[in-house]
């Protein structure tokens, strides 16, 4: 069981902000796909701090990222 961030890519693609990627404490984890214009999470590297959720929901009021439980099989 793991607690990781997951980006609602459809919703994220409607904005051009790229702010969450600037505040993740982990390198090469919260990345940005220029072609699809959305942030995405490299889940095996995510430590589940939810700082990106604070940036996206509390600061920017965009609610594109949520924390989810995943298992190793997922």
């Amino acid at each position: 069981m793991y607690y990781v961030a997951r980006v609602d890519e459809e919703k994220c693609a409607t904005y051009k902000c790229k702010q969450c990627t600037l505040f993740c404490p982990e390198a090469n984890t919260l990345m940005f796909d220029e072609e699809r214009n959305t942030a995405y999470v490299n889940e095996p590297r995510c430590k589940g701090c939810a700082l990106c959720v604070y940036v996206c929901s509390d600061l920017l009021k965009r609610d594109c990222i949520e924390m989810v439980m995943v298992t190793a099989e997922e």
Partner: peptide, 11 residues
């Protein structure tokens, strides 16, 4: 552009 390129810092 953090998040667009491979960073030199690893896990």
């Amino acid at each position: 552009h953090l998040g667009d390129f491979k960073e030199i810092l690893e896990e």
